[in-house]
Amino acid sequence: MKNTIHVQRAIHKMTQADLSEAIGVSRQTINSIEKSRYVPSTILALKIARTFKVPVEELFELEESDDR
């Protein structure tokens, strides 16, 4: 699953630490999500979308490998 969190962070001029504080997780978790090493729960995905005021589909996108 691809995501555009780092792009949204840049648009909103937020660091990983800022975002982690806003949604109540560790900075390492944000880093893992951005690198697609960790797929967040629906709750966390919605919280991130709410922080950036965008729909969740704009943040996360399925890849071909996810269809297998």
Partner: peptide, 9 residues
């Protein structure tokens, strides 16, 4: 120290 869903996972 800072528990979250990833660490629980």
């Amino acid at each position: 120290k800072f528990p979250d869903e990833r660490l629980l996972n």
